[in-house]
Amino acid sequence: MTCGEHGVVVAMVPWARHGAGHTRDFDDTIAWLATTLELLGPARCAEITHVSADAAARIARRRGVLPQAVRCAHPFHVVKWATEALDQVRRQTWNALRREPGGSGRDRRGRRASTGPAQHLKRARWALWKNPENLTGRQRHKLAWIAKTEPRLHRAYLLKEGLRHVFAAPAHDAKQALQRWLSWAARSPIPEFVKLGRTIRAERETIHASLDHGLSNALIESTNTKIRLLTRIAFGFKHPDALISLALLPLGGYRPALPDRTPT
């Protein structure tokens, strides 16, 4: 961190180890991945041809983990980058509206609260985040209001949607669409998307691989989410075997024979 009086200051933080280039969780993920692959053994690791992941796979590859595998950028994480950039623009716009005359006031408890356009924009977050086909009528109205009153924010929204549509197109068309999107982002007066464009250019090879092979870890992440839900259901069980059995039944393909039941 930087101090105005003392310059750059190194301080201990709870989320990273000293001298580490990443957070503790990120380093732990890489360590877990390396340990898992070590347990698989060289022969089975050599059979892995493609990997779909976020930036963790890039760091793992630098450390010599699965150097032969084709790394594919997970589409969800790429679109998530655009959503995060959009949200930064939304917060900037909201703060600018709050600083305008009449943009903020006091609620009944005396706390500072947004008023007028700032209040409308604060409640429009989901209209910007959700896919257009999933918007409610009220959210569509808010999006139309943003298009009329906040063109910079609306342009950021269109950039986010444009990147999302890249992954919905066939591979050949998607690569051309990605190139057009990168040109659009580079010309954009929005620094957050100019920066995102540079990030995506650096990851273009992995994004192209994802488009070519159609590889995604969505199924695995869905399974992990279901296991986390089952873990909450299993609170109070005395032994982990109960949780394992609970997970194997819906997710492991187990079809035990039950009395008076005809298998389907």
Rank of each mutant, 00 (worst) to 15 (best):
I233R: 15
T136R: 07
R138L: 07
T223V: 14
D260N: 07
W126Q: 07
P259A: 15
T225W: 03
T23M: 04
Q139W: 00
A202H: 14
L86R: 14
Y254Q: 12
A185E: 06
D27F: 10
A247G: 02
R261W: 10
I227P: 07
A257R: 11
D241S: 14
A11H: 03
V194F: 05
L163T: 04
W129C: 10
R138K: 11
S52R: 02
A234E: 11
V89D: 03
A171K: 01
R152F: 08
E161L: 02
T35D: 11
A168C: 07
L182F: 05
G105M: 03
T93N: 05
G236V: 12
H154Q: 11
N224Y: 08
I146P: 02
P117G: 01
S183C: 05
E150L: 13
G252D: 06
D173I: 01
V51L: 03
A11Q: 11
A144F: 00
M1K: 13
D28G: 09
E100L: 00
R112I: 00
L66Y: 06
R155Q: 13
P170N: 01
T93L: 09
E161C: 09
R187P: 02
L219I: 12
D28T: 13
A171W: 06
C3L: 11
R58W: 07
T29I: 01
G110L: 04
V78F: 01
A147G: 01
G162A: 04
G64N: 09
G116L: 10
C3T: 15
H165A: 10
R187H: 13
R228P: 09
L33C: 12
L251D: 03
G4F: 05
P101N: 11
I190G: 03
W81F: 15
L158C: 08
I30E: 06
E192F: 00
V65W: 05
A242Q: 09
A171S: 06
